[in-house]
Deep mutational scan, measured.
Amino acid sequence: TEKEKEVKRLAKERGLSPDQVRELAQRAGFSPDQAKQIADEFA
């Protein structure tokens, strides 16, 4: 999704850790499970 792409782009730009990616995703409105899946891509 657009929102997911945006979260991943920000995460890459900022060099976020997987935990930070998960927090960012949840703040963007993703469920905890979705946020974990997104964060796992950065693990």
Rank of each mutant, 00 (worst) to 15 (best):
R14Q: 15
L24D: 01
F42G: 02
K36I: 12
R9T: 05
R27Y: 10
L10T: 06
L24M: 09
A25Q: 00
F30S: 01
E2W: 14
P32M: 08
L16C: 05
A25T: 00
F30A: 04
F30Q: 01
E4W: 15
E6C: 13
G29I: 00
R27F: 09
A28W: 15
D40T: 09
S17Y: 05
F30D: 02
E2T: 10
Q37T: 10
E6L: 14
R27A: 15
E4I: 15
G15L: 05
K5S: 11
S31Y: 03
D19T: 09
R9G: 04
Q37Y: 06
S31W: 04
E41G: 06
L10P: 00
E41C: 02
S31N: 09
P32S: 09
E41W: 09
A35Y: 01
R14F: 15
E2D: 13
Q20G: 07
D19S: 11
S17P: 04
D40E: 14
K36H: 10
E23D: 13
V21W: 01
L16V: 01
L16F: 06
D19P: 09
E6T: 08
L16S: 04
A43Y: 09
L16E: 01
G29S: 02
T1M: 13
K36F: 07
Q34I: 10
L10S: 04
A25S: 03
A39I: 03
V21H: 00
Q26A: 10
E6S: 05
R27S: 14
A11R: 00
R9E: 07
R22S: 06
S31R: 05
A28V: 14
A39F: 02
V21D: 02
Q26N: 05
A28M: 15
V7A: 02
Q37C: 07
E41T: 09
F30M: 04
R22F: 15
F42W: 14
K12V: 09
V7S: 01
V7C: 06
K36D: 12
R9S: 05
R22H: 07
E23Q: 12
A43M: 12
K3Y: 06
S31H: 06
D40R: 13
A11K: 02
S17K: 10
A35K: 00
A39V: 04
S17T: 14
L16A: 05
R14C: 14
E2H: 10
S17M: 06
F42E: 03
G15H: 11
R22G: 05
E41Y: 05
D19I: 09
R14L: 15
D33Y: 08
S17W: 06
D40Y: 13
A35R: 02
K3C: 07
E6D: 07
D40Q: 11
A11V: 01
A43G: 11
D33H: 11
V21K: 00
A35C: 09
Q37V: 12
L16Q: 02
R22P: 02
L24Y: 05
K8F: 08
E13M: 10
S17V: 05
A25C: 04
A39H: 01
K12H: 14
S31T: 15
P18Q: 10
P32K: 08
L16T: 01
K8Y: 08
L24P: 00
R27V: 10
K8A: 03
E41K: 06
G29N: 02
E23L: 12
E13D: 08
G29F: 01
V21R: 00
T1P: 13
E41F: 06
A25G: 03
V21Q: 00
A11H: 00
A43S: 10
A25I: 02
E41N: 07
T1F: 14
S17E: 07
A39W: 03
A43L: 11
D40L: 14
K5P: 01
K12W: 13
V7F: 10
L16W: 06
R9Y: 04
I38F: 04
K5G: 07
D40C: 11
L10R: 05
L10Q: 09
R14T: 07
K3A: 13
F30P: 00
K12R: 14
A35I: 04
E13I: 14
L24K: 01
E6A: 12
S31A: 08
R22I: 15
E6W: 15
A25W: 01
Q20K: 06
V7Q: 01
A25N: 00
F42T: 05
P18L: 08
V21P: 00
A25K: 00
P18H: 14
A39S: 06
D33R: 09
R27I: 13
A28G: 04
P18A: 12
D33V: 09
E13V: 10
A28I: 13
S31P: 12
A25Y: 01
A39T: 03
A39Y: 03
R14H: 15
L10A: 06
F30I: 04
A43N: 08
P18E: 07
A28K: 07
Q34L: 09
E23F: 06
D40A: 13
R27M: 14
G29R: 03
E6P: 00
L10F: 08
S17R: 10
V7L: 15
D40K: 11
Q26Y: 09
E23M: 11
K3E: 08
D19F: 08
V7P: 00
A39M: 06
E23W: 08
L24T: 02
R22V: 14
A28S: 11
Q34M: 11
G15F: 05
V7T: 02
Q34R: 15
K12F: 11
V21E: 02
P18G: 09
Q37A: 14
Q20W: 04
T1V: 13
D33P: 05
K5M: 13
A35P: 02
E41P: 02
S31K: 05
R27P: 00
F30N: 00
E6V: 09
D19W: 11
S17I: 04
L16D: 04
E23H: 10
E41H: 06
V21G: 01
K12L: 10
D40S: 10
E2A: 09
R22W: 12
E13R: 05
K8W: 08
R14D: 05
A39Q: 03
E4A: 15
Q20H: 04
Q20I: 04
V21S: 01
E2S: 12
G29M: 01
K5Y: 11
S31V: 03
K5L: 14
I38E: 02
R22C: 04
V7H: 02
P32T: 07
T1C: 14
E13H: 06
E6N: 06
E2P: 09
I38V: 04
D33L: 12
R27C: 14
Q26D: 04
G15D: 09
R14N: 13
P32N: 07
A11E: 02
Q20V: 03
R22K: 11
E4V: 15
D19L: 09
R14E: 09
G29C: 01
K36E: 11
L24C: 06
D33I: 10
R9A: 07
T1R: 13
P32E: 10
K5H: 10
K5D: 14
Q34K: 15
L10W: 10
D19R: 10
V21T: 06
P32D: 10
D19H: 10
T1E: 14
A25H: 00
D33A: 15
I38P: 02
D19M: 10
K12T: 08
P18C: 01
K12C: 12
A11N: 02
Q20A: 08
R27N: 13
F30V: 02
Q37K: 15
A11F: 02
K3R: 14
A35S: 06
F30Y: 05
T1Q: 14
L24A: 07
R27Q: 15
Q20R: 05
Q26S: 07
R14K: 14
E23I: 12
Q34A: 12
P32G: 05
E2Y: 10
K8P: 00
S17H: 09
E2C: 12
E4Q: 10
Q26T: 11
D33Q: 14
V7Y: 03
D33M: 11
R14I: 08
E23R: 08
E13G: 04
A11S: 05
S31Q: 06
D19Y: 08
P32F: 12
K3H: 07
L10Y: 11
K8S: 03
E6K: 06
E23Y: 06
A11W: 04
E6G: 04
A28R: 09
E4M: 15
F42K: 01
D40F: 12
R22T: 07
K8N: 03
A43H: 07
K5R: 14
Q20C: 04
P32C: 12
K8G: 03
A28T: 07
S31E: 05
D33N: 08
I38S: 01
Q26V: 15
Q34N: 04
K36G: 08
K36L: 12
F42A: 04
F42D: 02
R27E: 15
E13F: 05
V7K: 01
V21M: 04
R27T: 11
P32H: 08
E13P: 01
F30E: 00
K5T: 12
R22M: 15
Q26G: 05
F30G: 00
R22N: 09
L16M: 09
K3F: 07
G15V: 04
F30W: 03
F42Q: 02
T1D: 13
P18F: 13
A39P: 02
Q37D: 05
Q34S: 05
R27H: 12
A11L: 02
Q26K: 07
E23S: 06
P32V: 12
D40P: 01
